[in-house]
């Protein structure tokens, strides 16, 4: 029923979901580092650095996986996206570089000086704020229908990403990543004050995400008509959007009731469903409206090998990732819940 190219495109979406849930939360951690304040500002920053230190490099690799499947399985789409969206992708890269390197330098200082903020800490935090926005802008732009293959190939970079719809997707991405981070961070600490800090942040993020979940489709109606119709007209994506809204409600209520592990599960579901809903609405396009999944796909031989490599790699990889999280997140992810 599903051909290889759809499976490969599905693997890109799956990598993006994992990147959002894991790497996205690390960016969200940086956002909360930037916004750390109050009597526990320093404790907040230390908690964030402690939470993401051992795992951020692993979480970061998911975006590499996504881009490698894209250029191997869909070289035409990769060429089109990197030409048309030259500017936001370049900015996205500088954000990725700055966030990663600055965090490594920052945590080195942290280790030495016990939590005093460094200049690199600020760079890490600012890059964590900008990178998700740019990632969302790129995702919004490929859905907008404004990137035309023939124009791009002759003229070069497009400015279509600088319009309300892609920018709103960028803000949604930022809000979701921050939301994920705050929901995870509550369970990273036993300190009631810190828990309350991040609970409040999670509630604010929840409101921001909810507002953007309304704003993005409204802006799509004006700026990305085809996508709008696909999003709400297609049973799959409309259903997924409905489920995402349900999860959002569940997350918010659980946060209010201080049922933190339920809240975390709901936020994870909400973020995954938003991305899945985007995927269902975008299907069968990779870049609307000129490049569909089959039109951009590599040869069957290449797709088959890539999928085999992914499956085989996953068999080795997932136990290793499980081990990593078992070692560092035993209590917070797998273990006792609702310690209060």
């Amino acid at each position: 029923m599903y051909d290889l190219s759809t499976l490969a495109a599905g693997s890109i979406l799956a990598s993006l979901v994992l990147y959002a849930l894991l790497g996205g939360a690390d960016f969200g951690g940086g956002v909360w580092d930037l916004l750390s304040r109050g009597p526990r500002g320093r404790a907040q920053r230390l908690l964030i650095a402690h939470a993401i230190g051992p795992i951020w490099e692993t979480n970061h690799v998911w975006v590499v996986v996504a881009v490698v499947i894209l250029f191997t399985g869909f070289p035409k789409a990769f060429a089109l996206i990197s030409t048309a969206l030259f500017l936001p992708v370049t900015l996205l890269l500088s954000g990725i570089v700055l966030r990663g390197a600055a965090f490594a330098f920052h945590s080195y200082h942290l280790h030495d000086e016990g939590g005093r903020n460094s200049r690199w800490g600020t760079v890490f935090a600012c890059a964590s704020l900008l990178t998700p926005v740019l990632l969302g802008v790129v995702i919004g732009a490929v859905s907008s229908g404004e990137i035309r293959a023939h124009e791009t190939y002759s003229v070069g970079a497009s400015m279509a990403w600088l319009s309300p719809f892609p920018l709103s997707v960028g803000l949604l991405t930022l809000a979701v990543f921050s939301y994920l981070a705050s929901a995870y961070l509550i369970l990273e600490t036993d300190d009631p004050g810190l828990r309350e800090d991040f609970r409040l942040r999670a509630l604010w993020s929840s409101a921001a995400v909810a507002a953007l979940m309304v704003a993005v489709p409204l802006l799509a109606k004006r700026g990305a008509g085809d996508f709008y119709h696909a999003l709400l007209g297609n049973d799959w994506s409309a259903g997924l959007v409905f489920l995402a809204a349900t999860a959002a409600l569940g997350a918010h209520v659980s946060l209010m009731l201080r049922s933190f592990s339920v809240a975390r599960a709901c936020v994870v579901a909400q973020a995954s469903l938003i991305l899945a809903g985007w995927g269902a609405a975008q299907y069968p396009y990779l870049v609307r409206p000129d490049l569909t999944i089959p039109a951009a796909a590599s040869s069957q031989a290449s797709l088959r090998l890539i999928l085999i490599a992914l499956a085989a790699g996953g068999l080795l990889l997932f136990p290793a990732i499980f081990l990593l999280f078992w070692v560092f997140k035993k209590d917070t992810v797998f273990g006792r819940t609702n310690r209060s």
């Binding site: 490099e57 996986v65 191997t72 290449s302 890539i306 080795l316 290793a320």
Partner: peptide, 23 residues
Amino acid sequence: GGIIGLPFALEGFAFFAEAIFLG
């Protein structure tokens, strides 16, 4: 991309292993 993607994909896994075990 479709011709030489395989080593890049496998490299992704090697990179994963490095990152996991370094953590």
